[in-house]
Amino acid sequence: MSLETVEYVKEAEERATKLEQDSVVEIKNIKTEEQATIEEQKKELSLELKKYEVEQQKEYDQKVTSIEEDLNKVIAVEVKEMKESVQMNKTNVVNDIVKEVVNRYGNS
């Protein structure tokens, strides 16, 4: 082999070694970037999940409040009707007592 060929082979080996070293560094960089991207996406997903949970809780609370308000309205109406019924029954009892007294004792 000639001296030129030996030099060419040495240079080729040096370039191959350099390419191998560069590729190892590049692989490490890619892995680091990949891990950083994964962590960032995990954070974003976690934030979105928390935001969704807050929105769902808000909707749930609104539904519960609406149901409670509706129930309170129904209860208020029923209580009013019961009070009116009790008052009417009291009036009827008083009227019945007055009638009975008048019937028994007359208009003395």
Rank of each mutant, 00 (worst) to 15 (best):
I30Y: 11
K50N: 00
Q87E: 07
V86F: 13
K10F: 10
V64P: 01
E78G: 00
V6N: 13
R104I: 02
N107M: 15
M1Q: 13
Q21G: 08
N29F: 08
L71M: 11
S85T: 11
E69W: 00
A76Q: 01
K73C: 01
N95T: 05
E78S: 04
N72Q: 01
L47H: 04
S46Y: 00
E4H: 05
T91K: 05
E39R: 00
K31F: 05
K83R: 07
I67R: 12
E20G: 01
V9C: 05
R104Y: 04
T5Q: 01
T17P: 02
V101Y: 11
Y52G: 02
E26K: 15
K63G: 10
K18N: 07
V6F: 10
E20V: 05
K80Q: 05
G106W: 00
D96G: 15
E69P: 00
K63R: 15
D70T: 01
V94W: 12
K31I: 03
G106Y: 01
K51Q: 06
N29C: 07
D61T: 10
D22I: 05
E78P: 00
V93A: 09
Q62S: 05
K10Y: 11
S46W: 01
N95G: 04
V6K: 09
V93N: 11
L19D: 12
I38W: 04
N89W: 15
Q21K: 04
T32P: 00
E33Q: 14
A12D: 08
T32F: 05
T65S: 14
D22Q: 05
V94Y: 12
N103A: 13
E39K: 00
N72A: 09
S66H: 13
N89K: 02
Q57D: 09
T17L: 12
N103P: 02
T17I: 02
E59P: 00
E55F: 04
S66M: 11
K99N: 03
V64Y: 09
K28T: 09
K83C: 06
T37I: 10
T37P: 00
E40K: 04
I67M: 13
N72F: 03
K28V: 07
T91H: 13
K73M: 03
V94M: 06
V74R: 03
S2I: 13
T37A: 07
E14H: 13
D61Y: 08
K31L: 09
K90T: 02
Y8W: 15
D70W: 08
E100W: 15
T5C: 09
E100D: 13
T5F: 09
V102H: 07
E69C: 03
V54H: 03
A36H: 10
S46E: 04
Q57N: 13
E48R: 01
V24Y: 09
E81V: 04
S23E: 08
V9Q: 06
V79R: 07
